[in-house]
């Protein structure tokens, strides 16, 4: 997965063509850490369908807020730089990674 920063966010996500998945996370967020293996598996199993990225919000909070992300974990799908779907903590904790896979299949 691509590690996003202030420096590469625009190029990798907002100016990118096609489907991009971004995991907004932080090492202090227990749910994020719990989901991390699932996210890595999602990326590994769906290589061709989207570009998989993650953003550690710890040093990048302004960037996250600019993307209207103000809670962790949040997963966002972008298509051609446009935010088209997102999953927040509650949905992720109750519905797990399966719904994200479904969404991915639908969008890809």
């Amino acid at each position: 997965m691509i590690e996003l920063t202030k420096e590469n966010f625009d190029a990798e996500v907002l100016e990118a063509e096609g489907l991009v998945f971004v995991d907004f996370w932080s090492p202090k967020c227990e749910s994020c850490m719990a989901l991390l293996p699932d996210v890595e598996a999602l990326a590994a199993n769906n290589g061709g369908k989207a570009k998989f990225c993650k953003l550690d919000t710890a040093g990048n909070r302004r960037l996250a807020i600019a993307q209207k992300v103000l809670g962790l974990p949040t997963f966002v799908f972008y298509k051609d730089g446009e935010k088209i779907a997102s999953f927040e903590k509650d949905a992720l904790e109750s519905g797990g990674i399966e719904q994200v896979q479904k969404k991915l299949d639908e969008l890809a």
Partner: peptide
């Protein structure tokens, strides 16, 4: 939720 409404300060 997740857009300013939170139930977890640490997170």
């Amino acid at each position: 939720r997740g857009k300013g409404v939170s139930y977890c300060a640490t997170c």
